[in-house]
Design a protein around this nucleic acid. Structure first.
Length: 516
RNA sequence: GGGCCUAUAGCUCAGUAGGUAGAGCAUCGGACUUUUAAUCCGCGGGUCGCCGGUUCGAGCCCGGCUGGGCCCA
């Protein structure tokens, strides 16, 4: 609704792109204009610099004990800035709660006796909820014993034109995601999630560094996508006049790095898969991949367990669970990531669940029959896909504790080495935590001839219409022909790792998830 | 892909049977020097997601579309 404030008509009509300005915004815009008119070049509603001496948490840490005695004074003058999240103005005394980014608050008191009539009136006129405010004054405790700053000077640090949402109610789910910045202002859990993620990432890098792994960055725009079974996003390069793919995995480049002698290597970066999203999938997701020369799928499983357990320790640092691998989920349950995680066999557990022996030699017809009876639909079915789908159908749901599921059928894992003892099986594991797949690890396939055969088989699948089949990557094969050391490799979804550390859905672990 | 739920003021939400919309916070005007979602007085604020239909009359009923959520495959 357009506002008919006769004192500011020019300003309100000046901005052409602003079709309608609702009342609260119009009021704040008028205040912004007034501040800008008053301020000098470096000041106004958005000053360039402020004489800040302390952060709000620093004031709390240094002067917190003043709260033990009401109406006490420190004799120390500080300058702090924060967002106004609470305001109470009376005739001659104003209160404002300033909040810093981490959610810590401190009270500012603006008293007629300290600042004089003009400054007090101006404060009441120009300061709104949601503004960033700078205050300078003595640190005191109020009559109610609350740590406060008795203001002598104040200045708007940044004028908010849009009103702050209700800080006592959480935003609805959609607004939380679309306007995460508001979510972060209003909701403690949103702030905690960011810290947890950052700590986790730092911990992973630290664990790698301690083991002499090097972090690299490989192409995200690729001429040929590969390294996983997934549909890619396609884009176009104007300069090259060619089709490019957003990567679905960094694997084939990290293996080139292995060939080149970067023997312990990892990358943490984004993958893109042209699929829908749900509570465990996002089209754009952060992925960790790591390769260890002269390791295998056992050593890389050990590493994976250590990486996650160290991350749990990092998340618990400074909490009452310090030193524990038990993480606290958002719903209040404690989830134990400690101990040595079970390693179970895919064929073995599927056989147990079905009450009949399933082996790599079990014919496709027999598996298809079981699938049909159970109503499990498997597109482009072959032995491997059927075994995996049946395993997911019968066994997966029961896995809550962290579990490595070992030894997969060969058809579905074109980049994995044949098992050293079992025919028809590859040395691959999937790590399941709380029923979803968190990571996968291999003894990597180093034989360039077998690798070529696997690619050719995949190309046949692609020809049959499987759009997740792996394309033949000649450049990668050429690298393999120069000799890749035997290696263990691992890939782990970062967003899912955060899910298992926090118990949240994927959209809560991603700061700005994709929204239409 | 299928099913269910959902969209109303800046924010969070009510809205009975179909009769042109309410609350809390926020905002606006006034009072208040210790407030903690203060209190008191007064006033505003809505294309009820979009398009169509039924009806004398639609926030409500019907169809379609769009966004969001949940469950299933």
């Amino acid at each position: 609704m357009p506002v008919t404030d006769t004192t500011q008509p020019e300003e309100l009509n000046a901005s052409e792109f602003e079709q309608e300005v609702f009342e609260q915004k119009a009021v704040r815009m008028a205040k912004r204009d007034k501040l800008n008119a008053q301020g000098g070049l470096g000041g106004g509603a958005y000053p360039v610099a402020l004489p800040i001496t302390h952060t709000i948490p620093a004031v709390r840490a240094e002067f917190g004990k003043l709260e033990e005695e009401a109406d006490s004074r420190s004799g120390v003058t500080v300058g702090v800035a924060g967002r106004v999240v609470f305001q109470r103005n009376t005739g001659k005394l104003c209160f404002a709660a300033l909040q810093s980014g981490d959610g810590t608050r401190i009270q500012a008191m603006v008293s007629l006796a300290e600042v004089g009539e003009e400054s007090l009136a101006s404060f009441k006129e120009l300061v709104d909820l949601g503004d960033h405010l700078f205050v300078q004054g003595e640190v005191i405790s109020s009559r109610r014993g609350e740590l406060s700053i008795m203001v002598t000077e104040w200045q708007i640090a940044s004028k908010a034109i849009a009103p702050l949402p209700n800080v006592y109610k959480e935003l609805n789910e959609e607004t939380r995601v679309r306007q995460r910045y508001l979510d972060l202002i209003v909701r403690e859990q949103a702030r905690v999630n960011v810290v947890t993620r950052a700590r986790t990432m730092a911990s992973l890098r630290k664990t790698f560094a301690e083991r002499d792994f090097l972090e690299v960055e490989t192409p995200m725009l690729q001429v040929m996508h590969g390294g996983a079974a997934a549909r890619p996003f396609v884009t176009h390069s104007n300069a090259f006049d060619t089709e490019l793919f957003l990567r679905i995995a960094p694997e084939l480049y990290l293996k080139r790095a292995l060939v080149g002698g970067i023997e312990r290597v990892f990358e943490i970066n984004r993958n893109f898969r042209n699929e829908g999203s749900d509570s465990t999938h996002s089209p754009e997701f952060a992925m960790l991949e790591s390769y260890e020369a002269y390791g295998d799928y056992n050593s890389i499983a050990d590493l994976t367990q250590t990486l996650i357990q160290n991350a749990a320790l990092a998340v618990n640092e400074g909490t009452e669970r310090e030193g524990s691998h038990e993480v606290l989920w958002a719903d209040g349950t404690l989830f134990d990531l400690g101990g040595n995680w079970d390693r179970i066999s895919m064929y073995g557990t599927l056989s147990e669940a079905l009450g009949r022996e399933i082996t790599p030699a079990t014919p496709v017809d027999e598996l298809q029959q079981i699938a049909d009876t159970e109503g499990v639909q498997v597109p482009h079915a072959n032995h491997g896909k059927l075994v995996e789908e049946l395993w997911e159908h019968f066994v997966k749901g029961g896995l809550t504790r962290p579990t490595f599921v070992m030894d997969f059928p060969v058809e579905t894992s074109p980049l994995v080495r044949q098992h050293r003892d079992i025919e028809g099986v590859v040395e691959k594991w999937d790590l399941y935590i709380n029923g979803f797949e968190l990571a996968t690890g291999y003894s990597e396939l180093a034989d360039p001839v077998i690798q070529r055969e696997r690619f050719v088989e995949q190309a046949a699948l692609a020809a049959q219409g499987d759009d997740e089949a792996h394309p033949i990557d000649e450049e990668f094969l050429r690298a393999l022909e120069h000799g890749m050391p035997p290696a263990g490799g691992m890939g782990m979804g970062m967003d899912r790792l955060l899910m298992s550390l926090t118990g949240l859905g994927i959209r809560e672990t991603i700061l700005f998830p994709l929204v239409k």
